[in-house]
Design a protein around this nucleic acid. Structure first.
Lengths: 201, 201, 201, 201
DNA sequence: AATGAATGAGCATTCATTCAT
DNA sequence: GATGAATGAATGCTCATTCAT
């Protein structure tokens, strides 16, 4: 009836692919390992996906942050910026945590896999735009200094993405835990800057 | 003269390994490809390196940023912070640009290669510590607000690393160019914060 | 029907492995040669066996003498010792002859392959124990002198194993043929000893 | 002055080859490993030996038991047989122990290396003949029963060779230690036989 | 005499993919 | 839908041997 039958089965494969690729990389996520994790044979996967690349492209595409951000931007519209940024950061980190698999692969593979690279680029752009328009609104409303929002957004997401990857994926022990306290301090740093005040006076 | 003679040859292999790995990942940088690029046979590489891992470990280890930062920290000691941070950022970006191969592999492989992961972690820690002690000095001197330097350093390097990777490695076209202007604006953003306040008035 | 399906195919590989290893040793029995002998490609063997070691371990394990000896010991219980020992020796030699491949590998590889070595050791122990309990029974029944059965068993199997290997595997032409006459004389030698005494008069 | 210069150096290589081959087999005794053990480079060995086979052939040839046995046979001529056989066995075992390397390789490689096989065969024949003539003398002197000395000699050496290899090379723990007691018991078994008869009364 | 660099063939193993059943 | 068998190419690595220096 449909050309994409048995969605459950496809999803199972995608989930398994993500999980394994997270631990062993794209090359390490062999079709055999994915099949074994799902309790089927190798050939079976080829019944659902043309090839390995299709499996991964689909799995990655349907697991991005942009969808979450879209809703979120509306919800925080009326909060004070500090609170709004906090909400976004919290959700961002929680999505990273949930979908650590996806982002690991995205980060790692996009560096030498054109297709995944452009997918990453698209996701990144959508996020940037949503966030920029939020910040531009705040500037227009006089709640934020007239900063370069392009750079600001990059700094915002980049900071949390980096911090998360290094702490929770690479387990760098010299780094602070990524919790509410960390997020609060980060945002305060972002908002207030590092400069010693009377200096600014 | 040394127990690791014929440094030239070893260097050639390391450079080739970096270059190929940058384009095709660690797994994609096969010994055969490295050998071909150097115009020798596979076995020849094993005359110089115990195995693939040794080749990469050495190549990566001797291409980190920490050495550069060490000298730099002394040089900028007496500059105003804004200028000091600018110098560090400029040098950081220029090293990234020079050694884009290294950092691509580091970023990509450390996610699922324990050895490279811990190497990355070490490098990261050394950088953090150097920069933190610089910032702590500035705080003690009253030139910087008493911020959480751990987070600040992460934000600083993380921002430029991310921006660079996304722009110059992944070629995300919606992002601004990484030039002096970008660095200046980024640092001003960092120092002043985003907040709209009488403070800034 | 079983978790190790397609027994025929597995058996084919094991048989080929034995045959080649007999002629060229364990190291000389490459997977490629085994595959070629079976008319398949290399990868195909790995569909049936985890690795080379598993292939050989299984092949060897199912070709030991202990199983034969187990039955035989019951059958010869009531025969006179000379006849009983003759039966065992005849069967032992005939199994050696049948499975010359196996024993060659066992003998050769166990000297520098731990796994095969311990397999050989196990087989050897099982044989020893079966034979010892047979001899102990005979001693208890007063049909045999109260000898050190451990050494006796070693001497018994050792003699026929050695004689066989040297004559039929290494083709040492100065040695007598291994036939019924040889076995009879060997057993008479074993039972009566070499000593010249009025005893034998 | 000679076409085989620098005997010391050649001997060093042979000894190293034996030692390594004993632990890892003929194939495992690579030229590189032999060179490393001797503190020279690979190419150096080829200065002394045409190839690997020549190195091993020579090493094996000059390390047999026959020379020892030749002298021994004279010395024991006048001892009672039991004592004579004990002396031979003791010396045989001690030579095995000393040259365990050689005999391991001989036993292992002769099974699939024609050249080594025929070398082993020669050594075996020389030993057999010496021992047979000793036994034949004893029979003629009426000190030994008129046994088939060909088989007897095979049994004698075969037993100790087997026992030694299995116990001290393969470390089969269920087997008795190879010591004077073991040798004594073995010889008594050989001389008196196993049969329980009024004969022995 | 010795070195060190190089080679080419070979090895065990893995993998994405195909396809008859 | 699913399986299991098969393939062919590739991978990291090893080895005996050669040879200019």
């Amino acid at each position: 009836m449909s050309d994409r039958p048995n969605t459950d089965r496809r999803d199972m494969f995608k989930a398994a692919a993500m999980e394994i690729a997270c631990q062993r990389g794209y090359d390490g996520a062999t079709i055999k390992r994915i099949a074994e994790k799902c309790g089927v044979t190798v050939g079976s996967i080829y019944h659902y996906f043309e090839n390995k690349e299709e499996l991964f492209r689909e799995a990655l595409q349907e697991r991005t942050f942009a969808a979450v951000l879209e809703k979120l931007v509306d919800e925080i519209e009326d909060l004070p910026i500090e609170e709004g940024l906090f909400q976004v950061a919290v959700r961002f980190v929680s999505v990273l945590r949930e979908r650590i698999n996806l982002f690991s692969i995205l980060a790692a593979e996009s560096l030498h896999n054109t297709e995944i690279g452009s997918l990453f680029s698209d996701v990144s752009r959508r996020n940037s735009e949503l966030m920029k328009s939020y910040l531009d609104g705040k500037i227009a409303a006089g709640q934020l200094a007239p900063i370069h929002t392009g750079i600001a957004v990059q700094m915002f997401f980049g900071h949390f993405f980096n911090a998360f990857l290094h702490k929770e994926r690479l387990h760098m022990q010299h780094l602070p835990e990524i919790n509410d306290e960390f997020i609060h301090q980060s945002i305060r740093l972002i908002l207030n800057g590092w400069r010693q005040e009377d200096i600014h006076a």
